[in-house]
Simulated assay, not measured.
Amino acid sequence: MTVRNPVSNLQTLIRCPSVTPEEGGALDALEAMLSPMGFHVQRMVAKDENTPDVENLYARFGSDGPHLMFAGHTDVVPTGDDALWSHPPFSADIDNGRVFGRGAVDMKGGIACFIAALARHIEENGPPPGSVSLLITGDEEGPSINGTDKLLKWADERGERWDAALVGEPTNPDVLGEMIKVGRRGSLSGRITIRGTQGHVAYPDRADNPLRALPAMLQSLMGKAYDNGNDRFPPSNLEVTSVDTGNSATNVIPDHVSAVFNIRFNDSWTTETLQNEIVSRLQRAAQDLSLRSGKQAATFDIEWLGRPSPVFLTRNDALAGSLSEAIEAVTGKMPSLSTTGGTSDARFIKDYCPVVEFGLVGQTMHKIDEHVPVSDLETLTVIYQNFIGRWFARAVGR
Protein backbone atom coordinates (compact mmCIF):
# COMPACT_ATOMS: atom_id res chain seq x y z
CA MET A 1 0.00 0.00 0.00
CA THR A 2 1.38 3.44 -0.88
CA VAL A 3 0.15 4.84 2.43
CA ARG A 4 2.77 2.73 4.23
CA ASN A 5 5.13 5.71 4.03
CA PRO A 6 4.40 8.27 6.79
CA VAL A 7 6.61 10.90 5.16
CA SER A 8 4.66 10.95 1.90
CA ASN A 9 1.39 10.87 3.88
CA LEU A 10 2.51 13.90 5.86
CA GLN A 11 3.70 15.81 2.82
CA THR A 12 0.31 15.31 1.19
CA LEU A 13 -1.46 16.65 4.29
CA ILE A 14 0.86 19.62 4.86
CA ARG A 15 0.30 20.75 1.27
CA CYS A 16 -3.36 21.24 2.15
CA PRO A 17 -3.63 24.77 3.63
CA SER A 18 -6.19 23.83 6.27
CA VAL A 19 -5.87 26.86 8.55
CA THR A 20 -8.76 26.59 10.99
CA PRO A 21 -11.65 26.49 10.14
CA GLU A 22 -10.85 25.86 6.45
CA GLU A 23 -10.87 22.24 5.26
CA GLY A 24 -8.18 23.18 2.73
CA GLY A 25 -8.31 19.82 0.96
CA ALA A 26 -7.00 17.89 3.99
CA LEU A 27 -10.11 15.77 4.46
CA ASP A 28 -10.20 15.09 0.71
CA ALA A 29 -6.62 13.85 1.00
CA LEU A 30 -7.48 11.63 3.95
CA GLU A 31 -10.48 10.15 2.17
CA ALA A 32 -8.24 9.37 -0.82
CA MET A 33 -5.85 7.53 1.51
CA LEU A 34 -8.44 5.65 3.54
CA SER A 35 -11.00 4.52 0.97
CA PRO A 36 -8.60 2.21 -0.93
CA MET A 37 -7.64 0.64 2.39
CA GLY A 38 -11.23 -0.48 2.92
CA PHE A 39 -12.45 2.28 5.22
CA HIS A 40 -16.04 3.47 5.05
CA VAL A 41 -15.58 7.24 5.03
CA GLN A 42 -18.24 9.75 6.04
CA ARG A 43 -18.05 13.53 6.18
CA MET A 44 -20.27 15.78 8.29
CA VAL A 45 -20.53 19.54 8.59
CA ALA A 46 -21.22 20.90 12.06
CA LYS A 47 -22.92 24.26 12.55
CA ASP A 48 -23.62 26.57 15.45
CA GLU A 49 -24.62 30.18 15.98
CA ASN A 50 -21.88 32.77 15.71
CA THR A 51 -19.26 30.19 14.75
CA PRO A 52 -17.98 29.10 11.33
CA ASP A 53 -19.26 25.85 9.83
CA VAL A 54 -16.67 23.07 10.15
CA GLU A 55 -16.31 19.90 8.09
CA ASN A 56 -15.26 16.75 9.94
CA LEU A 57 -14.46 13.17 8.92
CA TYR A 58 -15.32 9.79 10.41
CA ALA A 59 -13.93 6.62 8.84
CA ARG A 60 -14.30 3.01 10.01
CA PHE A 61 -12.44 -0.14 9.02
CA GLY A 62 -14.27 -3.33 10.04
CA SER A 63 -17.78 -3.76 11.36
CA ASP A 64 -17.56 -5.72 14.61
CA GLY A 65 -15.26 -6.91 17.36
CA PRO A 66 -13.17 -4.69 19.65
CA HIS A 67 -13.21 -1.15 18.36
CA LEU A 68 -10.17 1.14 18.55
CA MET A 69 -10.50 4.83 17.74
CA PHE A 70 -7.70 7.10 16.58
CA ALA A 71 -8.60 10.77 16.98
CA GLY A 72 -6.96 13.93 15.72
CA HIS A 73 -7.33 17.13 13.75
CA THR A 74 -6.25 18.40 10.37
CA ASP A 75 -6.81 22.08 11.06
CA VAL A 76 -3.71 24.12 11.83
CA VAL A 77 -2.95 27.51 13.33
CA PRO A 78 -2.08 30.45 11.04
CA THR A 79 1.46 30.57 9.69
CA GLY A 80 2.37 34.07 10.81
CA ASP A 81 4.74 35.96 8.54
CA ASP A 82 5.50 33.53 5.69
CA ALA A 83 8.67 35.49 4.89
CA LEU A 84 10.18 34.35 8.19
CA TRP A 85 9.93 30.68 7.24
CA SER A 86 13.04 29.06 5.78
CA HIS A 87 10.71 26.94 3.64
CA PRO A 88 7.18 27.92 2.55
CA PRO A 89 4.82 26.75 5.32
CA PHE A 90 2.72 24.54 3.03
CA SER A 91 5.54 23.22 0.86
CA ALA A 92 6.37 20.15 3.00
CA ASP A 93 10.00 20.49 1.94
CA ILE A 94 12.51 18.01 3.32
CA ASP A 95 15.77 19.61 4.42
CA ASN A 96 18.55 17.99 6.47
CA GLY A 97 16.35 15.04 7.37
CA ARG A 98 13.40 17.16 8.53
CA VAL A 99 9.95 17.77 7.04
CA PHE A 100 9.00 21.46 7.26
CA GLY A 101 5.48 22.80 7.27
CA ARG A 102 2.57 24.02 9.33
CA GLY A 103 0.99 21.01 11.01
CA ALA A 104 4.08 18.81 10.72
CA VAL A 105 3.98 18.24 14.49
CA ASP A 106 0.53 19.49 15.46
CA MET A 107 -0.84 17.22 14.34
CA LYS A 108 -0.84 16.04 10.75
CA GLY A 109 2.30 14.06 11.55
CA GLY A 110 0.47 11.85 14.03
CA ILE A 111 -2.33 11.16 11.56
CA ALA A 112 0.17 10.34 8.80
CA CYS A 113 1.97 7.87 11.06
CA PHE A 114 -1.17 6.11 12.28
CA ILE A 115 -2.43 5.56 8.74
CA ALA A 116 0.97 4.18 7.74
CA ALA A 117 1.05 1.95 10.83
CA LEU A 118 -2.38 0.47 10.13
CA ALA A 119 -1.51 -0.08 6.46
CA ARG A 120 1.63 -1.96 7.46
CA HIS A 121 -0.25 -4.01 10.04
CA ILE A 122 -2.88 -5.06 7.50
CA GLU A 123 -0.27 -5.89 4.88
CA GLU A 124 1.97 -7.87 7.23
CA ASN A 125 -0.57 -9.45 9.61
CA GLY A 126 -3.95 -9.15 7.94
CA PRO A 127 -6.85 -7.06 9.23
CA PRO A 128 -7.02 -6.65 13.01
CA PRO A 129 -9.61 -8.81 14.81
CA GLY A 130 -12.07 -5.97 15.20
CA SER A 131 -12.59 -2.43 13.99
CA VAL A 132 -10.49 0.71 13.70
CA SER A 133 -11.95 4.16 13.24
CA LEU A 134 -10.48 7.57 12.56
CA LEU A 135 -12.29 10.53 14.06
CA ILE A 136 -10.78 13.65 12.50
CA THR A 137 -11.95 17.20 13.14
CA GLY A 138 -11.23 20.56 11.55
CA ASP A 139 -11.99 22.57 14.70
CA GLU A 140 -9.36 21.70 17.31
CA GLU A 141 -7.33 24.86 16.88
CA GLY A 142 -10.49 26.98 16.72
CA PRO A 143 -13.28 27.35 19.28
CA SER A 144 -13.77 23.55 19.40
CA ILE A 145 -17.53 23.95 19.13
CA ASN A 146 -18.14 22.35 15.72
CA GLY A 147 -15.49 19.67 16.00
CA THR A 148 -14.84 16.55 18.05
CA ASP A 149 -17.68 17.10 20.52
CA LYS A 150 -20.34 17.22 17.81
CA LEU A 151 -18.67 14.56 15.68
CA LEU A 152 -18.73 12.14 18.62
CA LYS A 153 -22.41 12.84 19.24
CA TRP A 154 -23.16 12.42 15.52
CA ALA A 155 -21.37 9.05 15.44
CA ASP A 156 -22.90 7.91 18.72
CA GLU A 157 -26.39 8.63 17.41
CA ARG A 158 -25.59 6.31 14.48
CA GLY A 159 -24.73 3.47 16.79
CA GLU A 160 -20.95 3.80 16.91
CA ARG A 161 -19.35 2.45 20.10
CA TRP A 162 -15.68 2.40 20.99
CA ASP A 163 -13.63 0.36 23.42
CA ALA A 164 -10.59 2.63 23.53
CA ALA A 165 -9.17 5.74 21.90
CA LEU A 166 -5.72 7.07 21.07
CA VAL A 167 -5.28 10.79 20.36
CA GLY A 168 -2.21 11.58 18.26
CA GLU A 169 -1.36 14.98 19.75
CA PRO A 170 2.34 15.79 20.26
CA THR A 171 2.89 14.67 23.86
CA ASN A 172 6.66 14.37 24.15
CA PRO A 173 8.56 17.41 25.51
CA ASP A 174 12.04 16.56 24.21
CA VAL A 175 12.46 12.99 22.96
CA LEU A 176 10.04 10.64 21.26
CA GLY A 177 8.83 8.00 23.69
CA GLU A 178 9.15 9.85 26.98
CA MET A 179 5.53 10.75 27.77
CA ILE A 180 1.96 9.48 27.42
CA LYS A 181 -0.89 11.73 28.48
CA VAL A 182 -3.37 9.71 30.54
CA GLY A 183 -5.51 12.62 31.66
CA ARG A 184 -5.79 16.36 31.68
CA ARG A 185 -6.30 18.99 34.31
CA GLY A 186 -9.53 20.92 34.20
CA SER A 187 -9.63 24.53 33.04
CA LEU A 188 -11.88 27.27 34.37
CA SER A 189 -11.79 30.95 33.40
CA GLY A 190 -13.55 33.93 34.87
CA ARG A 191 -13.68 37.70 35.12
CA ILE A 192 -14.18 39.59 38.36
CA THR A 193 -15.38 43.20 38.17
CA ILE A 194 -15.05 45.34 41.26
CA ARG A 195 -17.46 48.29 41.34
CA GLY A 196 -16.60 51.75 42.70
CA THR A 197 -17.54 55.39 42.23
CA GLN A 198 -15.80 57.56 39.68
CA GLY A 199 -14.32 60.85 40.78
CA HIS A 200 -11.45 63.34 40.69
CA VAL A 201 -8.20 62.07 42.18
CA ALA A 202 -7.92 65.36 44.14
CA TYR A 203 -11.17 64.57 45.96
CA PRO A 204 -10.93 60.89 46.96
CA ASP A 205 -13.52 61.38 49.68
CA ARG A 206 -16.11 61.92 46.92
CA ALA A 207 -15.18 58.73 45.09
CA ASP A 208 -14.61 55.05 45.80
CA ASN A 209 -11.55 53.69 44.03
CA PRO A 210 -12.16 50.01 43.14
CA LEU A 211 -8.41 49.54 42.68
CA ARG A 212 -8.00 49.79 46.45
CA ALA A 213 -9.95 46.55 46.78
CA LEU A 214 -8.07 44.79 44.01
CA PRO A 215 -4.89 43.70 45.89
CA ALA A 216 -6.86 41.81 48.54
CA MET A 217 -9.07 40.21 45.88
CA LEU A 218 -6.09 39.04 43.82
CA GLN A 219 -4.29 37.84 46.95
CA SER A 220 -7.33 35.74 47.83
CA LEU A 221 -7.21 34.09 44.40
CA MET A 222 -3.47 33.49 44.16
CA GLY A 223 -2.07 33.61 47.67
CA LYS A 224 -3.29 30.37 49.24
CA ALA A 225 -2.80 26.97 47.60
CA TYR A 226 -5.96 25.29 46.44
CA ASP A 227 -4.56 21.80 47.11
CA ASN A 228 -1.27 19.92 47.26
CA GLY A 229 -1.77 17.77 44.18
CA ASN A 230 -1.59 13.99 44.25
CA ASP A 231 0.16 11.02 42.66
CA ARG A 232 -1.34 11.77 39.22
CA PHE A 233 -1.84 15.54 39.18
CA PRO A 234 0.22 18.59 40.17
CA PRO A 235 -1.35 21.18 42.51
CA SER A 236 -4.14 23.27 41.06
CA ASN A 237 -2.91 26.71 40.01
CA LEU A 238 -4.66 29.99 39.28
CA GLU A 239 -3.11 32.81 37.27
CA VAL A 240 -4.50 36.30 36.69
CA THR A 241 -3.98 37.09 33.02
CA SER A 242 -5.41 40.60 32.62
CA VAL A 243 -6.31 43.67 34.71
CA ASP A 244 -8.15 46.61 33.15
CA THR A 245 -10.00 49.75 34.19
CA GLY A 246 -10.75 51.10 30.74
CA ASN A 247 -9.42 54.39 32.07
CA SER A 248 -6.92 56.43 30.04
CA ALA A 249 -6.95 59.52 32.29
CA THR A 250 -4.37 60.07 35.04
CA ASN A 251 -6.57 62.33 37.15
CA VAL A 252 -9.76 60.26 37.22
CA ILE A 253 -10.57 57.55 39.72
CA PRO A 254 -12.21 54.74 37.69
CA ASP A 255 -15.64 53.38 38.51
CA HIS A 256 -14.61 49.76 38.00
CA VAL A 257 -11.68 47.42 37.53
CA SER A 258 -11.81 43.97 35.97
CA ALA A 259 -9.41 41.06 36.29
CA VAL A 260 -9.45 37.92 34.16
CA PHE A 261 -8.10 34.63 35.50
CA ASN A 262 -7.68 30.99 34.58
CA ILE A 263 -7.18 28.06 36.90
CA ARG A 264 -5.92 24.62 35.88
CA PHE A 265 -7.25 22.20 38.46
CA ASN A 266 -6.85 18.58 39.44
CA ASP A 267 -9.34 15.95 40.52
CA SER A 268 -9.61 17.40 44.02
CA TRP A 269 -12.26 19.62 42.48
CA THR A 270 -15.26 19.65 40.21
CA THR A 271 -16.15 22.76 38.24
CA GLU A 272 -18.96 23.49 40.69
CA THR A 273 -16.95 23.05 43.90
CA LEU A 274 -14.12 25.16 42.47
CA GLN A 275 -16.48 27.96 41.47
CA ASN A 276 -17.89 27.94 45.01
CA GLU A 277 -14.39 28.11 46.48
CA ILE A 278 -13.41 31.05 44.29
CA VAL A 279 -16.57 33.00 45.12
CA SER A 280 -16.07 32.29 48.82
CA ARG A 281 -12.51 33.58 48.70
CA LEU A 282 -13.58 36.75 46.92
CA GLN A 283 -16.42 37.40 49.35
CA ARG A 284 -14.03 37.21 52.30
CA ALA A 285 -11.50 39.45 50.54
CA ALA A 286 -14.19 42.03 49.79
CA GLN A 287 -14.40 42.65 53.57
CA ASP A 288 -10.74 43.68 53.73
CA LEU A 289 -10.68 47.44 54.44
CA SER A 290 -6.91 47.82 54.90
CA LEU A 291 -6.72 50.06 51.81
CA ARG A 292 -10.33 51.26 52.06
CA SER A 293 -10.48 53.15 55.33
CA GLY A 294 -13.95 54.49 55.99
CA LYS A 295 -15.51 52.48 53.16
CA GLN A 296 -17.88 49.54 53.12
CA ALA A 297 -17.07 46.09 51.79
CA ALA A 298 -16.21 46.09 48.11
CA THR A 299 -18.91 45.23 45.62
CA PHE A 300 -18.00 42.82 42.84
CA ASP A 301 -19.47 40.65 40.09
CA ILE A 302 -18.04 37.46 38.66
CA GLU A 303 -18.58 36.13 35.15
CA TRP A 304 -17.52 32.63 34.13
CA LEU A 305 -15.94 32.74 30.69
CA GLY A 306 -16.23 30.15 27.93
CA ARG A 307 -16.96 26.49 28.49
CA PRO A 308 -15.14 24.93 31.46
CA SER A 309 -13.03 21.85 30.70
CA PRO A 310 -13.48 19.05 33.22
CA VAL A 311 -10.58 17.21 34.79
CA PHE A 312 -10.22 13.54 33.90
CA LEU A 313 -7.90 10.60 34.41
CA THR A 314 -7.83 7.37 32.39
CA ARG A 315 -7.18 4.24 34.41
CA ASN A 316 -7.15 1.47 31.82
CA ASP A 317 -4.25 -0.98 31.87
CA ALA A 318 -5.15 -2.56 28.53
CA LEU A 319 -4.86 0.81 26.79
CA ALA A 320 -2.04 2.55 28.63
CA GLY A 321 -0.23 -0.74 29.18
CA SER A 322 -0.30 -1.72 25.51
CA LEU A 323 0.98 1.70 24.49
CA SER A 324 3.71 1.78 27.16
CA GLU A 325 4.90 -1.67 26.15
CA ALA A 326 4.97 -0.70 22.48
CA ILE A 327 6.99 2.44 23.22
CA GLU A 328 9.48 0.52 25.34
CA ALA A 329 9.80 -2.24 22.74
CA VAL A 330 10.63 0.28 19.99
CA THR A 331 12.60 2.98 21.83
CA GLY A 332 13.88 1.23 24.94
CA LYS A 333 12.24 3.95 27.06
CA MET A 334 9.46 3.43 29.60
CA PRO A 335 7.27 6.52 29.17
CA SER A 336 5.95 8.53 32.07
CA LEU A 337 2.18 8.70 32.47
CA SER A 338 1.43 12.41 32.63
CA THR A 339 -1.49 14.80 33.10
CA THR A 340 0.48 17.99 32.41
CA GLY A 341 -0.15 20.56 29.70
CA GLY A 342 -3.26 22.25 28.43
CA THR A 343 -6.59 20.84 27.35
CA SER A 344 -7.19 18.67 24.28
CA ASP A 345 -10.07 16.98 22.50
CA ALA A 346 -9.52 13.97 24.76
CA ARG A 347 -11.78 15.85 27.19
CA PHE A 348 -14.71 15.04 24.90
CA ILE A 349 -13.68 11.48 24.08
CA LYS A 350 -13.37 10.40 27.73
CA ASP A 351 -17.19 10.46 27.99
CA TYR A 352 -17.38 7.62 25.42
CA CYS A 353 -14.40 5.36 26.13
CA PRO A 354 -10.99 5.26 27.82
CA VAL A 355 -8.56 7.59 26.06
CA VAL A 356 -4.82 8.30 26.09
CA GLU A 357 -2.66 10.62 24.02
CA PHE A 358 0.67 9.96 22.36
CA GLY A 359 2.35 11.58 19.39
CA LEU A 360 5.43 13.47 18.25
CA VAL A 361 7.79 15.82 20.07
CA GLY A 362 6.07 19.17 20.47
CA GLN A 363 8.98 21.61 20.53
CA THR A 364 8.20 23.33 17.21
CA MET A 365 4.39 23.22 17.19
CA HIS A 366 2.76 26.59 16.41
CA LYS A 367 6.20 28.08 15.67
CA ILE A 368 7.81 29.54 12.57
CA ASP A 369 9.58 26.67 10.74
CA GLU A 370 7.51 23.96 12.41
CA HIS A 371 9.17 20.69 11.46
CA VAL A 372 9.62 17.03 12.35
CA PRO A 373 12.59 14.70 11.83
CA VAL A 374 11.95 12.01 9.23
CA SER A 375 13.41 9.53 11.73
CA ASP A 376 10.73 10.44 14.30
CA LEU A 377 7.98 9.83 11.75
CA GLU A 378 9.31 6.34 11.11
CA THR A 379 9.75 5.61 14.82
CA LEU A 380 6.24 6.78 15.69
CA THR A 381 4.82 4.65 12.87
CA VAL A 382 6.58 1.56 14.25
CA ILE A 383 5.30 2.37 17.77
CA TYR A 384 1.74 2.76 16.51
CA GLN A 385 1.98 -0.50 14.56
CA ASN A 386 3.30 -2.32 17.63
CA PHE A 387 0.54 -0.77 19.73
CA ILE A 388 -2.23 -1.84 17.33
CA GLY A 389 -1.08 -5.45 17.54
CA ARG A 390 -0.73 -5.41 21.32
CA TRP A 391 -4.06 -3.70 21.99
CA PHE A 392 -6.08 -6.04 19.81
CA ALA A 393 -4.30 -9.06 21.29
CA ARG A 394 -5.40 -7.97 24.75
CA ALA A 395 -8.86 -7.00 23.59
CA VAL A 396 -9.60 -10.45 22.17
CA GLY A 397 -7.83 -12.25 25.02
CA ARG A 398 -4.91 -13.71 23.11
Rank of each mutant, 00 (worst) to 15 (best):
D139T: 12
F348D: 09
H73L: 12
T250V: 15
T250M: 12
S290I: 01
V243E: 02
G183R: 02
R394F: 00
S91L: 03
I302K: 00
K295F: 10
R232V: 06
G183M: 03
T20Q: 07
D53Y: 04
Y203L: 13
T381L: 01
A164Y: 07
V374N: 00
N56M: 09
G186S: 08
R184L: 05
P173A: 07
G126L: 06
I383V: 13
D255S: 14
V372Q: 00
E378K: 09
T364Y: 01
G190W: 05
N386I: 00
P66F: 11
G159I: 14
G24P: 06
L30M: 12
G229Y: 07
V356A: 09
R232S: 14
S280T: 14
A318L: 10
N5I: 03
R390I: 01
F387R: 02
V105I: 13
S280H: 14
P210I: 11
M44R: 02
L84W: 05
G130M: 11
I263K: 00
A117C: 02
G196A: 12
E123Y: 07
N209T: 11
G24Y: 08
G229L: 02
F387E: 05
Q385E: 15
M1W: 06
A202S: 15
T20A: 13
P128K: 10
D255N: 12
A395H: 05
I122P: 05
G101H: 04
K108W: 08
L377Y: 04
G168C: 13
V243N: 01
H256S: 15
S309A: 15
A298S: 12
M44G: 00
M222E: 14
E124S: 11
G294I: 04
V257D: 01
I368H: 04
P234N: 02
C113V: 03
P21N: 09
G168T: 15
L13Y: 08
E272R: 09
T74F: 08
G341L: 03
S18L: 05
R264V: 02
V374S: 00
T314G: 08
I122C: 15
